[in-house]
Structure formats: C-alpha cells, structure tokens
Amino acid sequence: MIYLYKENFIDLLNLINYLLKNKVKPENIKNEIYMKTLLEETYYPVIAEDKNLSERIINKIGIESFLIVYYVFLSNADNKELLIYKYLLSSLKYKNKIRFMRNIDCVNECLKISKYVKTEAHKFKGFVRFSELDNGVLYSQIEPENNIMLLLCNHFKRRLKNECWVIKDNRRNLVGIYDKKECYILDSDIDIKKFDSEDYYEDMWKEFYKTIGIKERKNDRCRMNFMPKKYWKYIVEVSDNEKSSV
C-alpha cells in the first residue's frame, strides 16, 4: 500500500506518526499528486492534525536530529518520504543519538541528503544573481536541485532588508517575495521578462570578472569543480560563448 499526504512537512509527519502508532508498514509514502501505476494501490488516510507533534518529536530526538528530517524533506530525493519514515522509526530506539548512527543505512542516507541540501543552499547564497528592474525591485531566477527557497529567503531578508526582492524558482514555479517587511513564499509561474535597457553595473561586473582571473594560472577544471555547469544558466558573468561551447 502506498500512503499519500498533502504536500507539506507537517502533513507528512502526521502521516508517519499515524503509521507508527498503528504499526502499519507502508510499501511507500508519496505526496498526493503522485501518479500511481496500474499495479499500485494508494490510500489517503484522514488524520486529525496533531498540533504539537513536531514539538514532541523535537523533545524526543533533539533539534539537530529533527532538522536533518526537515532538510531531507526539502530534497529532491525520490524515496525521501520512506527514508524519513525509516529514520523516525529508528529514532524511537536511538532517540537523540540517532544522528550519530551512521552504520544504519537509512540514517547514513538521511545525513548525506541533508548535507547535500545544506550545501546547495550555501552555494546559492553566493550564486543567486539579482538584476534591478525599472521600479527598483531586485529580481532573480534559480533552478536548484532541492527546494531551498525558505533557506534563501531567510538569508536575504537579513542581508537585503531595505530592498524589495523576488526570487523565482523556475523548476518548482515557486516565488519568494520580500517587501521590506515580510517575506512570502507562493506558488506562481510569473515570468518577468528582462527589461531591454542594459544594466550598467552588470556590464561592469562582467568586465571585473574577466579581469580578475590570472591567465598564467588558468584552470578550467578547478573552476568547474567549484562552479559546475549546472549553475551557469543565470550566472551573468559567465559569457554566452562559454555557456554555449560546452
């Protein structure tokens, strides 16, 4: 049986709590938009939301171990729900020591995935490129592997607190919007066309980028290791020539 949940974290925790309580072993867990195959059976249990559930889990396994679950949820890993289920199942036994139990496969897997999500969020704190729209709003587009919007918004609302900005995740049609006071994350497929007028400072940045590399030390492989091609699409200083040549 494949169990379904509404596409949010709290709902997933409630479902897993329900499964553990009723000692049901799910074949898999998927969010409600999952397209089942002919041979699969899905079930969407009606569960009354337990308001203090996350708090109780945190009390039991500690905030560090709990955050790992949250980062795995944000990831694009195929089997992430089942992994979270297994991790929480093991945490009944190991409690706040769960995150040290690397010899258990699901724990090791969760640690790896959560690290990957955190690393990607860290990289995007550097790789996000805003352009200034005519009305002064800063606009950027990203296509990360994982859903790191909340992590990025938390970063930029501290950093650019007196600016209005929009971050658009084109892979998920999500936008993060900040209006100098509050930050909102919404589903949206808005597509802001880039204005025609050239951005003076963007040009200047491209020139700076070309200049700052030392030609006697040229090292494409090293650059690629730190800034792989998959990030290049919106990185303005990488020239169109380079983008199309590989």
Binding site: Y209, R223, M227
Partner: peptide, 13 residues
C-alpha cells in the same frame, strides 16, 4: 560565501 570562481579557479568573494 564564495560568489563566483574566476577562470583560474580562485574564489571571488
């Protein structure tokens, strides 16, 4: 935070 990497592979921060 590294914001970019130059043609010589060095971080631009």
């Amino acid at each position: 935070i590294c914001h970019s990497f130059a043609s010589d592979g060095r971080c631009i921060s």
